[in-house]
Amino acid sequence: MTISPKLLKILLVEDSKSDAVLIQETLSSSRLLDELYVVRDGVDATNFLYQTGSYTNAPRPDLILLDLNLPKKNGQELLAEIKADENLKTIPVVILSTSSTEADIVKSYQNHVNCYLVKPVELDQFVHVVEAIEHFWLALAELPSSQG
């Protein structure tokens, strides 16, 4: 008897439309991805995670891909909020940011990020990073159940 792998739900918090489209296209062929939800700012991400506003039927994501430089509420604020919440803190969060500053990296890990990756400028390297996220987080890592 073969056990089918769990299909995962990812929340992508990304204000750059071009980066979001590239991530969506790269992950679209994944056999392990159930759904990729995209929100463009930190406030919408909060509403999604707490199922408020227009996101009352939003599912709990299995993984969050988070940009730092977001409008309305930045990625560090959102990360700190997620990791301080008993119901959300077990959701793995991967920072995917253009920032490679030591201060941003250190602050992210102080806020309990699970992984910090710098977005490459080159298209093929960007795709490689997204594929590496897919391989590790969707195929290799054991994630907690959706109940947290």
Rank of each mutant, 00 (worst) to 15 (best):
A45N: 00
Q51D: 02
T90Y: 11
K17M: 14
K107Q: 15
V21Y: 09
E142T: 09
I64Q: 00
V118T: 09
D41Y: 05
T98W: 05
G42N: 05
V127I: 14
A45P: 00
S16N: 15
T101V: 09
H112G: 06
L65I: 15
D67C: 02
L140I: 09
P61T: 08
K6S: 08
E35A: 10
A45M: 01
T52K: 14
N47Q: 15
P59G: 02
I10V: 15
L33K: 05
L65H: 07
R60L: 06
S30T: 00
S146V: 08
Q147G: 09
Q24V: 07
L117P: 04
N111S: 14
I82S: 01
L65E: 01
S28P: 07
N47P: 04
Q125M: 11
H112F: 12
V118K: 01
L138W: 04
E142W: 09
P144Y: 01
G42Y: 00
V13W: 06
S18V: 15
E77V: 03
V106Q: 13
H135C: 08
R60N: 04
C115R: 09
E25S: 12
L27P: 03
I3C: 07
L123H: 12
A132P: 06
E86L: 10
L65V: 12
S97G: 05
N114V: 08
L63G: 01
F48S: 08
I3P: 05
S4W: 10
V43C: 04
S29Y: 10
E81D: 12
D41W: 01
K17R: 15
E122I: 13
K17H: 15
P71W: 06
R40C: 13
T2Y: 09
V93S: 02
V130W: 00
I133P: 02
S145T: 07
K107N: 14
T26H: 04
I95K: 10
V94E: 09
I95S: 02
Q24L: 12
N114C: 08
E122N: 13
T46I: 11
E142A: 10
D85H: 10
L11A: 07
K73W: 07
N74L: 06
T101N: 13
E77H: 02
T2G: 06
W137N: 03
L88P: 00
H128A: 13
E102L: 14
E25R: 11
T98V: 06
K17D: 15
Y37D: 10
